[in-house]
Design a protein around this nucleic acid. Structure first.
Length: 711
RNA sequence: GCGCGAUUAGCUCAGUUGGUUAGAGCAUCUCAUUUACACUGAGAGGGUCGCAGGUUCGAAUCCUGCAUCGCGCACCA
């Protein structure tokens, strides 16, 4: 017997060696498959952000996906799990900006090329680290096909997609109101915004004969239009277009009356003035009435010359000064200091979003969403858990155009020229456009980069080498997309739309969404709370197999998981239990090879049958993605039936030499089958034990056949 | 406001199409100690399944309403 078995199982000594064994075997690559004609199974790994190290959420991803992949490989599929890394545009830039801040530097004023190079170096350094961490998790992915979102071929395909959508009129350059973060100096899509409830003051101001209510007096300098509902009886004497002279913040102005149905007669006085440059609703009213729009606040959150004496003042400081002035002029009727409302903030830094009118690239989402809805509603894409389908359908049915321009350097450059004269935008892949095709004006290169989700939204077909690669033909559409429920809109839904648009096929057949990993108390992990759990600390302490079991047992899809160290400790004991059982079994079955299971005594025959029906049961559950229950059943059966009952029973038979052969072959076969079944969950300890088994065929457990039938 | 979840043992959660006495892990308590394994074994306690109705021979499960918590979306100045 192997001497290692005499000591407790030692993951540290085992894991690296085993991983190397697998990697060197070449079986992570589906090209080396036992049956080249086997049905493919494809899973694309969500590209890991290359701006830090693995967190607990990644631990969950690697665990669940590796379980799927190992299972399919053992079932004989030509299995591809394609790993990738994400430059993660804005996310990474934010991380890097914080690093700069610590060094007393800032991105503003830096040479963009220099900044880009620095972030690239930073990312490449992190990539190495992250890759080795993914390997520590036991991920059996095909490293030979690894992709990075800034690889040349990825950029090329993304550029072609841009051009194609531009030609198809699905991408346009528009002067529209966008969400602008004054701290990060970039615009966002509607998804990068976080709503936050706040209590502020609501100011009731005298505006000529009217009283208007506002929570943002600092925007009101340019308000020259006063709007009311056309059916509001209180204001029936005022007519559309009527001019009214009145005294305002910085002196007398002439206001114009507008009537618009967007006005809520119930709110405040039923009258408001509009600031089209800095408010979405006001912008729409202005568009409808075709009136001019004027910028009041600049990109840094400071007031422009329209504010007169307040010019250059930051809006935060200006507000009380403006109110003070208005009070002196007798224009403040009252202040409600308990006004509860929702403001929009930057999801990263919490800074108040300042809506601004900007010229940006937008994707028309409606036509794309309609096609996606068709496929989702017809069941071509299955959602696990199912309720995510409803959420997706709801979002797709109310979709807004997607702003894909970002004013940051870290990303894929937008291949486009902008006319300096008329602002017209043109897609330009080969850098060939020299003059505006509308007004013949001078053109300049667009300096913006793509929203990172525009490129990762193309991930399934980009990674497989669309359109000509053999891989694309073999492995697309992929089978499963496994990712966090959090990014269902950001990523999953956009992949469906872009995948359908470019390839005409759904990018994946099943969407499996996992929940958040929370700390032991069920709180969201965050650096500020100091409750972040590093998965690598846990694997170091308890072994990767134990960590993986802790991640998967009882963790139903879509539900968040409270990660308690106790759980993982329990599975460390389990790994050792398997180890010790092996010691007993191998010690007692040296001469049992020739016994025929047909000659079992009655109770052993029953046990054999019980195990085989358990295998049928869990095979079905594996196919239904119910890993949480399979892991638990295997744990329970191994420990409390195999070890506690069957082995205890066998001791007596072997010792007293009564039906000893029956007992020996039963425990040997049990161990054999259970090692295979446990392999997807606990790959290291099972592979290590497998190598000690006196099997005739000494191939790796990695490619052993799943024991679903009579094995 | 609209939508989506959740509510089951002290804690974290399972519970498949309605069907015996509602399960697991951890925690707690009692007992065991020459053995594969103390990283152990045997056993125990602990739940009016959020509340109120309804459907049914039968409901944790299906329907309606309510409450609490969480999330998403849209918004009113």
């Amino acid at each position: 017997m192997n001497e290692k078995l005499l000591k407790p199982y030692n993951p540290k000594e085992t894991e690296e060696r085993i991983y190397k064994l697998w990697e060197d075997s070449g079986f992570f690559n589906p090209n080396k498959t036992l049956d080249p004609k086997a049905t493919p199974f494809t899973l694309i790994m969500p590209p890991t952000n290359a701006n830090g190290s693995l967190h607990a959420g990644h631990g969950l991803v690697m665990t669940i996906e590796d379980i799927m992949v190992r299972y399919k490989r053992m079932r004989g599929f030509k299995t591809l799990w394609l790993p990738g890394l994400d430059h993660a545009g804005f996310e990474t830039q934010v991380v890097y900006e914080k690093k700069l801040e610590k060094e007393g530097r800032t991105r503003f004023g830096m040479d963009p090329k220099e900044l880009y190079k620095e972030i690239l170096d930073f990312t490449l350094t992190n990539s190495k680290n992250i890759k080795s961490q993914i390997k520590k998790m036991g991920a059996s992915c095909d490293w030979s096909r690894e992709k990075f979102t800034l690889d040349d071929d990825v950029i090329k395909t993304v550029h072609q997609t841009f051009k194609r959508m531009y030609n198809d009129n699905l991408i346009y350059r528009g002067n529209k109101i966008v969400s602008w973060c004054p701290k990060h100096q970039t615009s966002f899509s509607d998804l990068e915004i976080k709503d936050e409830e706040r209590i502020d003051s609501l100011y009731y101001l005298k505006y000529g004969p009217f009283t208007i209510a506002t929570s943002r007096p600092e925007t009101k300098f340019g308000d020259k239009y006063v709007v009311m509902h056309p059916e509001d009886a209180r204001y029936k004497n005022y007519t559309e277009g009527q001019k009214i002279k009145l005294e305002w913040i910085n002196g007398p102005i002439e206001a114009t009356v507008l009537k618009d149905e967007a006005i809520d007669m119930e709110f405040g006085t039923g009258v408001m003035t509009i600031t089209p440059w800095h408010d979405t609703a006001d912008f729409e009213i202005a568009e409808r009435h075709k009136i001019e729009k004027e910028q009041v606040i600049d990109e840094n959150g400071k007031l422009l010359p329209i504010a007169g004496e307040f010019t250059g003042e930051h809006i935060k400081k200006a507000r009380p000064l403006i109110i003070e002035k208005l009070q002196k002029k007798g224009l403040v009727e009252k202040i409600d200091e308990n006004y509860k409302h929702v403001v929009r903030t930057c999801y990263k830094c919490g800074t108040l979003i300042e809506p601004q009118i900007k010229s940006q690239w937008f994707i028309k989402m409606k036509p794309l969403a309609e096609k996606a809805l068709e496929k989702i509603n017809s069941g071509e894409i299955v959602y696990i858990p199912e309720h995510y389908k409803k959420i997706t359908v709801h979002w797709l049915s109310n979709i807004m155009d997607w702003n894909i321009s970002r004013q940051i350097v870290w990303g894929i450059p937008i291949p486009a020229k902008i006319c300096a004269k008329c602002g017209h935008g043109m897609a330009d892949l080969g850098n060939t456009i020299k003059k505006c095709d509308k007004c013949s004006g001078e053109v300049i290169q667009d300096k913006d980069t793509f929203d990172t989700w525009f490129s990762s939204g193309q991930w399934p077909f980009v990674t497989l080498g669309y359109p000509d690669s053999p891989d694309f033909k073999t492995f697309y559409p992929t089978d499963v997309m496994e990712t966090a429920g959090e990014i269902i809109f950001f990523w999953v839904s956009r992949m469906i739309m872009l995948g359908l648009y470019i390839t005409g096929k759904v990018p994946f057949k099943t969407v499996y969404l996992h929940g958040l990993v929370l700390d032991a108390k069920g709180l969201k992990m965050s650096k500020s709370k100091g409750n972040v759990i590093d998965p690598l600390v846990l694997t170091e302490k308890y072994g990767t197999d134990a960590f993986r079991m802790g991640m998967v047992v009882g963790n139903t899809p879509g539900t968040s998981l409270a990660l308690a160290e106790d759980r993982i400790r329990g599975y460390k004991n389990f790994a050792n239990k398997i180890w010790n059982v092996t010691r007993f079994v191998l010690d007692n079955t040296k001469d049992a090879d020739n016994f025929d299971p047909k000659n079992y005594d009655e109770e052993d025959a029953k046990s054999e049958e019980e195990l085989s029906s358990l295998m049928k049961e869990i095979t079905k559950e594996m196919d239904e993605f119910k890993f949480y229950i399979v892991a638990e059943k295997l744990y329970h059966y191994f420990w409390h039936t195999f070890a506690d009952i069957i082995i205890e029973r066998s001791k007596k038979k072997i010792l007293e030499n009564k039906n000893a052969d029956s007992a020996k072959i039963l425990i040997y076969r049990h161990l054999n089958i259970l090692l295979k079944a446990l392999h997807p969950f606990m790959p290291f300890v099972t592979e290590e034990i497998w190598s000690m088994m006196p099997n005739k065929n000494k191939s790796l457990l990695l490619i052993a056949t799943w024991p679903n039938q009579n094995d």
